[in-house]
């Protein structure tokens, strides 16, 4: 179990911290061990990141071909959905969804862009393009 090389995680930064894990053996003792997660636990966590990364990459491609606005990319990158984005910015959800369209996004004023930038924790000038 104590394997810091973590062959399952694709991101090198993952799986570096040790956690407290409990277990129960045949003698009826609950044991506490500080260690890394086993392989099955890593597999299921990596699965979630695979799905998230797919969504982020998908959104990035759509932004590049001009189908959706960069807000969608940053929303996916921050693992949000329209509802939580609307709660965070204080803009109602149907307006947030309108701003997903590039046509509406171009017409946004600086004040609203600032709200989105604050929600994503980035600068306003970075909001208009994807990396």
């Amino acid at each position: 179990m104590d394997d810091p090389t973590n062959p399952v995680y694709k991101d090198q930064r993952h799986g570096k911290s040790r956690e407290l894990l409990y277990s129960y053996d045949e003698n009826g003792k609950f044991k506490k061990t500080v260690g890394f997660h086993g392989e099955p636990d890593r597999v299921i966590l990596q699965q979630a990141w695979d799905v998230f990364n797919d969504r982020i990459e998908n959104a990035r491609q759509k932004v590049i071909i001009g189908k959706v606005s960069p807000i969608v990319y940053y929303m996916e990158k921050n693992l949000m959905d329209p509802l939580s984005l609307s709660m965070l910015t204080g803009i109602s959800i149907w307006r947030v969804k309108l701003h997903f369209k590039p046509f509406m996004f171009k017409r946004l004023n600086r004040k609203i862009l600032q709200k989105y930038a604050d929600a994503f924790n980035i600068g306003v000038n970075k909001l208009t393009k994807v990396e």
Binding site: E19, L20, L21, Y22, S23, H37, P40, D41, I44, L45, A48
Partner: peptide, 12 residues
């Protein structure tokens, strides 16, 4: 499984 095992549950 993630909710059961990974997010700081101490297992199971």
């Amino acid at each position: 499984l993630r909710m059961a095992e990974d997010f700081g549950t101490g297992g199971a």
